[in-house]
Each structure stands twice: as structure tokens, then as C-alpha cells.
Write a protein that binds this DNA or RNA. Structure first.
Lengths: 203, 203
DNA sequence: TTTTTCCTAATGGTTTTCAAGTATATTTTA
DNA sequence: TAAAATATACTTGAAAACCATTAGGAAAAA
């Protein structure tokens, strides 16, 4: 089964796989819900699953699929720029991971290997996984609710007194939070903090 | 001609266009340079051009193509999430703009229309263009080289004295630049400036 | 229920930024 | 080459941010 919201990608996969012995394309879908509906009544051996579906996020597709048909092997198709979700995907139980610039050979290899019970990860994916493992060490300190509030207000350019007024607390308290924030994030001042926060998705 | 770094997309386009009267796929390429090399010696009527090529950015492909063969019509293929480049593309002289979730009908329509000398922009693209036009009013003030230097150092968390030392200028000068920056960007302090700069791609 | 974390607030400093105006050499550009 | 823009530097004050430390009560976790 092929699931991808781009008809042209589906066509491409079809023609890449058409002449291949042992591979038959049973059905294709362009969104998540109809895929799940189909799996309520039918099953397949292997699913080629795009991560960018219009309705349901790729990561959130894996469990629902496996809940319905735990025997199906999922091969994820994505592009380079989605490194952050790779490890989530792998952990959620997908058996293969390919980039969309894959050639016909690698594609059929992956399908056969996964069908036989193995796994297949693209070379690039393996590098991304290694990097993710390395980054895991440098995990972000977690901020409290109040700290996030204040971080946002600082990033909005508010001054301590403005923030205090807005939150109905003492300016001294705001200062305390600000100092704790800078300590936690290991930055020397607010400007650096805003940058760090934006780079790390805290804002 | 089709230019896309994903073989499966090329295959998909081929099979979508194969049976179409009046359309013949002369050649396909998966990177920018070989496309340009080909156009040195050959020409085509219409190019379907992906914006995500491994070597040359899609925007930077348009002019080199038109310099070689000013008669070719370029139809750009992209995904939703690349809105920022749409207006650049349109202005650079492409004749069509499609999203990759295009169906066979729209695709052939676009090709025929463009070949006849017209233009064809996806509905979604027209919305993006309208938004871009609205934003054009709020155009960024341009910063001088030195101001950019100092903006970067501020965003890195450096203090005025550090910056002065690093650039071998007086701290007073740095303060002047800082003041001009805040005035130009209409922000009340450094934290807001960093945020603004990051949101607007100045950093 | 005890322990820990979080939010709150204070004291008392020092340093840095922000504001507004002025001024001169040096590049750029028209 | 003349005019405009840019980079440089200074003065003077006020405002705000930053630093270190302590501490009580509330809320959440063990």
C-alpha cells in the first residue's frame, strides 16, 4: 500500500515498482483517515508511508496502523529536512526509513528486506540518528510555567516593571525569575536568552 | 524537461504525462548543474523545475536557464511550506507555479497554458502572493554592514565593552550603533531586537 | 505525610543599557 | 567631484538590567 498526499509521488512509486517480481500494489491513499478506514476492513504486507499527510501527522499514524494490523510493516518516506522526527518514528515501531530521493533498487531492496522481517534504514537516516543520540545529552533544562510566561514577555521586549504590572507581581519577583532563567539556560543576558529560546523552540 | 532530485517524482510526472497528447518528455535531470549543461547544447519548450535541488537553489536556477534559452517556459514545483520564495520566483520570470500535490488534470492544463504563452499559478500560490503583497508595505529598513556586525554580536550575548574590544572600536561607538539599530527596527531594547531580527531573517 | 519544587519577595549592591544631542573623519553614491 | 550616507567618538544622566543571597508560603511530587 502507498500513502502519500502527492499523486505524482504515488505515480512515481507505482511505475518504479510495477515490473518488480513479488511486489503488488494493492491500494493507494492520499490522506491518513481513509488509510485507517481501509485497514479496518483489509490488510496489506507493507505500507509505504509519507510523513506529510494533510490530515494526520506521520508520527501519529504509526500507532493507529499497528493497533489495527500489528502484522503490517511500515516503511516511512520523508525528506532530509525532517530529522527531528526520525528517532520518534523509529521508536514507534516502523521497520524502514527511506528518503524520497531513493532509487528503484534501494526501494525494492527495502521492501523485500522489511517483508522478510528485517529492517531497512537509509544511510542518511543512520547519520541523523547518531546526531540525535549525541544531542540527547545536551537536553534543555525544563522551565516552569511562570518562567515560560516571563521568558515570553522578555522576548516581547517588555521591561521588568511592565511584566510585573502585567502579571500582578512584584518587579523583584520578575527579576528573580529572570535570573533563574538566565542561570538555567546558561546565558549572560536577556538578548542571548531570547536568541537561545528561539533557536531551541522555547518561544 | 523535468528537473527534480527525487527519482520517484520524476517517474510520477512521467506516468502522469505519458499518455497526454502534445506533451513529450525530452529529458530529466536530478540536479541543477547538469540541467544547465544540457541547455548549453539543447533546448526545450517547457521545464518543470523543482525548487529543492541538491546543488543549486531553485531561485538561482531561473536566471541561468533564461540566460541560456530565453524562450523556455519554466513551471516551478514546490510544497506549501516554501511561501517565502514564491514572490521572488514570480518576479524572476517563471511562467507557472504548482504545488506538488497537483493532479494530472491541473498539471497538463498548466503545461498547455504556459506553452501557449500564458501563465498558470496554483490557487494556493495566489493566496500566498496576496499575503506577500500585504507584507511588502512593512518592508525592513536596511542595515549597514557595521550594524549587522553589531546586531550579531548583541544576539550572541556580548556586552557593549566586549563588542568594542572585538571590533577595535570605542564602546561609545558601539552604543551609537546599538541606538541606531533600535531606532531603525523600532524596538525598545536589545531583547526585542534579537527577537525581531531572528523573526525577519536578519540573523 | 514528608520532601521537594515553585512562586513569591526582599536587601543592597554593581554594571550595563537606554536616551538625546553633538561632531568629525571616511566611504559610497549620485 | 560634490552630496549623502556611514562609521566613528564624546557628554551627561536616568533607567534598567544584572549579581548574590536569603526566605516564607503554596503547590506538587515522593
Amino acid at each position: 500500500m502507498i500513502v502519500d498526499d502527492h499523486p505524482m509521488v504515488i505515480e512515481g512509486l507505482k511505475s518504479l515498482l510495477d515490473d518488480e517480481d513479488g511486489i503488488l500494489i494493492k491500494d493507494c491513499f492520499t490522506d491518513g483517515q481513509s488509510t485507517l478506514d481501509y485497514l479496518d476492513a483489509n490488510t496489506v504486507d507493507v505500507i509505504l508511508l509519507d510523513v506529510n499527510l494533510p490530515d494526520i501527522n506521520g508520527v501519529d499514524m504509526v500507532q493507529p496502523i499497528l493497533n489495527r494490523r500489528k502484522e503490517v510493516k511500515i516503511i516511512v518516506l520523508s525528506t532530509y529536512n525532517e530529522g527531528s522526527i526520525v528517532s520518534k518514528m523509529i521508536n514507534s515501531g516502523v521497520k524502514g526509513y527511506l528518503l524520497k530521493n531513493v532509487g528503484a533498487n534501494e526501494l525494492t531492496n527495502a521492501i523485500h528486506q522489511v517483508f522478510k522481517g528485517g529492517v531497512y534504514y537509509d544511510k542518511t537516516i543512520q547519520i541523523i540518528l547518531a546526531e540525535a543520540a549525541a544531542q540527547e545529552f545536551v537536553q534543555l533544562p525544563k522551565l516552569t510555567r511562570r518562567e515560560k510566561d516571563i521568558l515570553n514577555l522578555i522576548a516581547a521586549g517588555k521591561r521588568t516593571n511592565d511584566i510585573a504590572e502585567e502579571l500582578f507581581i512584584s518587579p523583584l519577583t520578575v527579576e528573580t525569575h529572570r535570573r533563574n532563567l538566565m542561570q538555567k539556560l546558561k546565558v549572560p543576558n536577556s538578548a542571548a536568552m531570547v536568541r537561545f529560546a528561539m533557536e531551541n523552540g522555547l518561544i
